[in-house]
């Protein structure tokens, strides 16, 4: 039997859904909702596969399909992400849009699908937004300078397991932007803090710690709103990045102001 020789599984149920999907031609175009009846959607389909099915039907009817961002469909590349009934990545906790399955919905549901809404993420088309502001934050200092070929043996520097685990907890961020989309202020504290903490807790990250902190935080503020501790970002995060990292970043930012000055005077 081949994996492509397929028929419906016995457990699969079919849903009839009412979709309201945001359509917008470009960053400066006016957008509007498209109402579509999405009938006979299998519960085993992922949310993006549901959109695939809808698009195939639109093409059949000579309607241009809906543009939506997606790639790995394994919840790791961070390309996908839409607002589903007002929630970034939809109703399931710790789950990116591509990993959300239709078995979480009920027959007859109305589902409103919109792009991330944030001034720093202009809509490019339909559900696709421009997230390059995130790259600017990384370029500002989200790295450890270690030119290829220069390092010592990897085991020369011991990293306590707890520290490595904390760094990994922060580094798990996939850069999808749900934190910004979920935030009433469109702030990017959780994304920035995750990258910053990943590098700042590690011994390898110490030499550039204060310079990195100042540059990343201030670049973030050039693009995004301010944090007022709602915690919506953590609720929406598909990787459950902890709010503690924001506290860590705030502490490091204050320190960076004096540390960077004292370094400059040396």
């Amino acid at each position: 039997m081949s994996t492509q020789d397929l028929s419906s599984t016995p457990e699969t149920r079919m849903l009839n859904l009412k979709l309201r999907i945001w359509r917008q031609d470009g960053p400066h175009a006016e957008g509007s909702f498209l109402d579509v009846d999405a009938d006979q959607i299998p519960t085993d389909a992922s949310f993006l596969e549901m959109l695939d099915i809808v698009n195939e039907r639109l093409i059949e009817d000579d309607v241009e399909p809906v543009t939506f961002p997606h790639d790995c469909r394994e919840g790791i590349c961070g390309t996908c992400g839409v607002m589903i009934n007002g929630q970034a990545h939809g109703p399931e906790k710790a789950t990116a849009t591509c990993q959300l399955h239709m078995r979480k919905f009920n027959d007859g549901d109305q589902i409103v699908v919109e792009p991330w809404r944030a001034a720093a993420f202009p809509v490019l088309k339909d559900l696709m937004v421009d997230r390059r502001a995130f790259d600017r934050i990384i370029e500002a200092g989200g790295y450890i300078t270690a030119p290829t070929g220069t390092p010592q043996d990897a085991n020369e520097t011991a990293v306590p397991k707890e520290v490595a685990d904390t760094a990994m907890d922060a580094a798990a961020c996939i850069g999808c932007g749900a934190c910004v989309a979920a935030c009433p202020n469109s702030a990017a504290q959780l994304f920035t803090a995750a990258k910053l903490a990943h590098l700042n807790v590690l011994p390898q990250g110490q030499p550039e710690r204060w310079k990195r902190t100042e540059a990343m935080v201030e670049t973030m503020e050039d693009y995004f709103g301010s944090c007022t501790n709602h915690g919506e970002c953590h609720q929406a995060c598909p990787k459950e990045i902890s709010l503690d990292f924001i506290a860590f970043m705030n502490r490091d930012y204050i320190k960076s102001k004096s540390k960077n000055r004292s370094l400059a005077s040396q």
Binding site: A146, T148, P151, D153, A154, L199, L202
Partner: peptide, 10 residues
């Protein structure tokens, strides 16, 4: 060695 120096959290 290279990746550990970059801060890859192995």
């Amino acid at each position: 060695d290279q990746c550990a120096a970059q801060g890859v959290p192995f």
